[in-house]
Amino acid sequence: MANVRAGWLVLALLFGALFSGPALAFQTRIVSIPSAAMHRAFDATVVLPADYARGKAARFPVIYVLHGSGGNYADWTSNTHIGKLADRYHVILVMPDGGHESWYIDSPYDPRSRYETYVGTEVVSYVDTHFRTLATRETRAITGLSMGGFGALRIALDRRDTFGAAGSISGAVDPRNCEDEPGISDVFGDPARHASFWNSNAIVESARAFEHAHIALTIDCGVSDFFVQSNRMLHEKLVELGVPHDYAERPGGHDWNYWSNSIRYQVLFFSTSFQRGGWHPQTA
């Protein structure tokens, strides 16, 4: 009789495992975020960690992840497993739409292109209002790939009270190398007539601005990437200036194979930065 009861117990446990609901995992939401600066709304992807649904009081750090030229808000979730990182590190991930060729700047030559204000101010305000975030610079980071890497560093430098950490993946840190890219002169102006604007916005020329920005900084690029030389130049300038930062070159080129690997290291870096600022994921 004891063996029979044990058999039924095993079967019950097996059926329970088979038919019980799946374990909680991250949630992906598409939201529409309005821009007063551009008089329209844009979609954005928000990934909430599993912990978000377990409690109604816990608040979470936020990492903003920007797409590259020609991309959109869905690129990261369509091409990588970035959502799993929200669960692993207990963070909210936000992927806003930055337009096809905005370079995430407020263009003085196209008044309709105000993407630095949109991403750096309006998106942040919306996310802090609509989700349970830890709304401090110490628990807020921004990164991106290619054009988005440029945009992330530019926005972080211009909004030091907003972002305490920033990164760049395969970043176009010197847009002067991209003069022939279709659409770039619409936002930067003619390279010859507006050279001063191009120069002042190039991240490689803004290295000194990081000296007193107190931004936790991580930069990486593939060794076969056409942007690797400009990234090395930025790294060397930061070293000369004594600016603390992480820098890495890994095998790979300018493609999703590289970016999907790189983002794992960057989210780990940001999580560590948040913890140094006093946040502990076990309390989330």
Results as ranks from 00 to 15, higher is better:
213 A>Q: 10
15 F>A: 12
37 A>F: 08
244 P>M: 03
257 N>P: 05
110 D>T: 10
114 R>I: 03
270 F>D: 10
274 F>D: 01
284 A>L: 11
114 R>L: 12
251 P>A: 10
191 P>A: 03
91 V>A: 05
88 R>Q: 13
130 H>K: 12
146 S>V: 02
122 E>P: 02
204 V>D: 04
274 F>W: 07
233 M>D: 11
160 R>P: 01
181 E>S: 13
149 G>F: 11
228 V>K: 07
114 R>M: 13
246 D>T: 02
84 K>G: 12
264 R>Q: 14
132 R>E: 09
31 V>Y: 14
235 H>Q: 06
156 A>I: 04
175 P>W: 08
256 W>H: 09
22 P>A: 14
24 L>K: 14
90 H>W: 03
92 I>S: 03
87 D>W: 05
29 R>Y: 02
278 G>R: 08
91 V>L: 08
71 G>R: 04
57 A>Q: 12
150 F>D: 02
36 A>Q: 15
89 Y>L: 02
17 A>V: 10
206 S>R: 14
129 T>K: 14
4 V>W: 15
111 P>K: 15
96 P>S: 08
158 D>Y: 03
117 T>L: 03
162 T>E: 09
279 W>F: 13
253 G>C: 06
182 P>D: 06
150 F>N: 01
121 T>G: 03
142 I>D: 01
213 A>C: 10
72 N>A: 15
98 G>Q: 06
205 E>M: 12
255 D>H: 03
117 T>C: 07
224 S>G: 06
179 E>T: 13
277 G>M: 05
238 L>N: 00
45 T>E: 14
155 I>H: 07
229 Q>I: 02
51 D>N: 15
66 L>N: 10
283 T>L: 14
159 R>N: 14
30 I>Q: 14
194 H>N: 15
128 D>W: 01
186 D>E: 13
262 S>Q: 04
276 R>M: 06
263 I>K: 06
137 R>C: 07
103 W>A: 09
197 F>R: 04
87 D>R: 06
32 S>V: 09
172 A>P: 12
52 Y>P: 12
274 F>P: 05
184 I>R: 08
173 V>F: 10
82 I>W: 07
106 D>Q: 11
145 L>T: 11
143 T>G: 04
247 Y>G: 02
187 V>N: 07
240 E>R: 09
123 V>E: 03
245 H>S: 01
189 G>L: 13
26 F>M: 04
3 N>F: 12
190 D>S: 11
141 A>C: 02
253 G>M: 05
169 I>C: 08
9 L>M: 13
53 A>N: 14
264 R>H: 11
148 G>F: 01
25 A>F: 09
191 P>W: 04
32 S>I: 07
138 E>H: 07
100 H>M: 07
110 D>Y: 10
224 S>L: 04
13 L>F: 12
202 A>H: 13
115 Y>C: 03
223 V>K: 09
230 S>R: 07
163 F>H: 05
73 Y>L: 08
2 A>E: 15
232 R>F: 08
254 H>L: 07
115 Y>G: 09
202 A>Y: 08
17 A>Q: 10
54 R>D: 13
72 N>S: 14
25 A>C: 13
